[in-house]
Simulated scan of single mutants.
Amino acid sequence: MKPNDHVNDINLTDFAMAFEELTRIIIRLPSIEKLSFTTLSVLHTLSRKSPMRLTELTATEQITQSAITQLVTRLERDGLVERRPDPSDGRVVLVHITEEGAKIIDSRRSERIAHLSKLFERLTPEEKTAIAEAIPALRHLAEIGNYSM
């Protein structure tokens, strides 16, 4: 175990491994929409931060400029995003999620909630309470992570 592995009695290795496993389960849930992880990630990002410049999407999604341009072109063709000029700088293009793109994200979230509810049924009342009490801290941790990227 590394010196920074514990922070205020939280084993960060255990925490990271539990989140990695939960993330893997959630990402791989069966879906009506057969879209790639990167496509879903871009749509999810835009559902929270739309509109965005292509360069911002390149940074947040950690793919090349060429790859994001191709992906946005395909998503635009499929009616899931649209490009519009930036009102403050006509030379810049902003990518917006469309209503159809937002529906996909909402559908995925509903599917995840349905799947998670089945898993939660198998938890003890104490485990459910512990998770419920951790939600505000987890949200704050996510906010910190989003601002540090």
Rank of each mutant, 00 (worst) to 15 (best):
Q70Y: 04
T60H: 14
T39Q: 14
N11G: 09
A16E: 14
L75W: 06
E21S: 13
V72K: 02
T73G: 01
F19Q: 08
L94P: 12
R53T: 05
S36A: 15
P3M: 01
I27F: 13
K49A: 03
E82N: 01
M17H: 15
I25H: 02
R74K: 09
Q62H: 12
G90F: 10
E33S: 15
S36F: 11
V95C: 08
R83W: 01
E20F: 15
V42Y: 04
S41R: 09
Q65W: 04
M1Q: 12
R48H: 06
I10H: 05
D9F: 07
A16G: 03
T69G: 03
L12D: 00
A67K: 05
N11Y: 06
S66L: 01
D9N: 13
L40G: 04
S31D: 12
T60N: 13
T64S: 15
E21V: 11
N4A: 00
F19D: 02
I32E: 12
R84M: 10
R74F: 03
L22N: 07
N8T: 00
F15A: 12
M17W: 14
R77D: 10
T58S: 03
V93H: 06
E56N: 06
H44W: 14
I63H: 11
P87L: 07
E33N: 15
D14P: 01
M1E: 07
D89N: 12
L57D: 00
P85F: 04
R24T: 03
F19N: 11
D86W: 06
S36I: 06
P3C: 00
G79S: 07
E56T: 10
S88Y: 11
S47W: 13
A67Q: 03
S41G: 03
E82Y: 14
D5Y: 03
H44K: 14
L29K: 10
M1C: 08
P51L: 08
R77N: 02
S47Q: 10
T64M: 11
L35P: 03
S31V: 12
E82M: 10
V81A: 04
P87Y: 04
F15D: 01
T45N: 11
P87W: 11
T45Q: 09
K49P: 10
P85G: 05
F37W: 04
V72L: 04
S36M: 03
E61C: 11
V42G: 00
I97K: 01
D5K: 07
Q65V: 09
P87Q: 02
I63A: 05
D14K: 05
M17D: 06
L94D: 12
T39S: 10
N11T: 08
N8F: 04
S47E: 02
L43W: 10
I97L: 00
S36W: 13
Q65E: 07
I10G: 06
K34S: 11
S47K: 11
R24Q: 12
T45H: 15
Q65L: 03
M52Q: 07
I26P: 03
G90C: 06
D86S: 04
E56W: 08
D9P: 00
K2E: 07
S31Q: 14
E76F: 02
M52N: 02
M52I: 04
S41P: 00
V92H: 03
I63L: 12
E21Y: 13
H96G: 00
D78K: 09
R83V: 01
S41A: 04
T55A: 13
M52G: 01
R74N: 05
D86G: 11
E33K: 15
V7L: 09
T38D: 08
